[in-house]
Nucleic acid binder design. Structure first.
Length: 223
DNA sequence: GCGACAG
DNA sequence: ATCTTGTCGC
């Protein structure tokens, strides 16, 4: 089970949402190296229905050794916040929080689809989840947002920095040779080197790390 | 001012 | 995010 800090409320406007991000940002821990070995790793993802505001939030937990699903929770909900770039955590977080609370295991690490510190205010979804749970989190995104990067060498394991002008906010990490990289950033309580090491290890066969693949798969399951 | 912009 | 078949390549 994951205990989520409930001393927070959801915003009703974009201005409120930005204020919450600025208020919570100082609570993110970025100077911890993070876990060396992990036993249980969670993956989070949200699927959307085509013509409605219905969404499906999924939290799965895999064994780090065999990469097999050992726990899962699915929450179907109506979205309460619109998609706004930079604020999209507020759309996905309410059902994701509920899914996390419904798990019966406690992961050592959480992988989120989207960004952590690679965010206009350095407070993407992975940071937000990290602050609410106190657990180590990593952001894994499929596209670079506002940031620049050179293409990594076309070999699995190669990476280049993800840059906001001259500030490093994450990495473009190649998890499969000749395949478009994923974009990794720190969420909470883990360093960038270690985060990339875990992501690479958790993605032995496909572009996306297995916990996120499994969460994505389950979020597409009709009803 | 307009468009682009994690999912 | 979602709408979508076959097809090229390792």
């Amino acid at each position: 089970m994951v205990f989520v800090n409930r001393l927070h409320e959801w915003p009703e406007s974009a201005e409120e949402a930005v204020a919450i991000q600025e208020r919570l940002r100082p609570l993110v821990v970025l100077n911890e190296p993070g876990p060396d070995e992990v036993e249980l790793v969670a993956g989070l993802d949200v699927g959307y229905a085509k013509d409605t505001d219905d969404l499906m939030a999924v939290a799965v937990v895999l064994s780090a050794s065999a990469l097999e699903v050992v726990d899962q929770a699915v929450v179907a909900r109506r979205a309460t916040f619109p998609y706004i770039p930079g604020l999209f955590a507020f759309r996905e977080l309410p059902p994701l929080v509920e899914a996390l609370e419904r798990l019966r295991t406690t992961p050592d690490l959480i992988l989120c689809d989207g960004y952590g510190t690679a965010h206009p205010r350095r407070f993407g979804l992975a940071c937000h989840v990290g602050v609410l749970t106190g657990l180590p989190t990593i952001g894994v995104a499929k596209t670079p947002f506002l940031f620049d990067h050179d293409p990594p060498e076309p070999k699995r394991g190669a990476w280049t920095p993800l840059l906001d002008t001259h500030e490093i906010v994450g990495r473009a990490l190649r998890t499969r040779s000749t395949v478009k990289p994923v974009f990794v950033s720190q969420g909470n309580r883990i360093g960038l080197d270690n985060a990339c090491r875990h992501v690479l290890r958790l993605a032995p066969a496909y572009r996306l790390p297995e916990p996120i693949r499994q969460a994505d798969r389950l979020s597409r399951t009709p009803t």
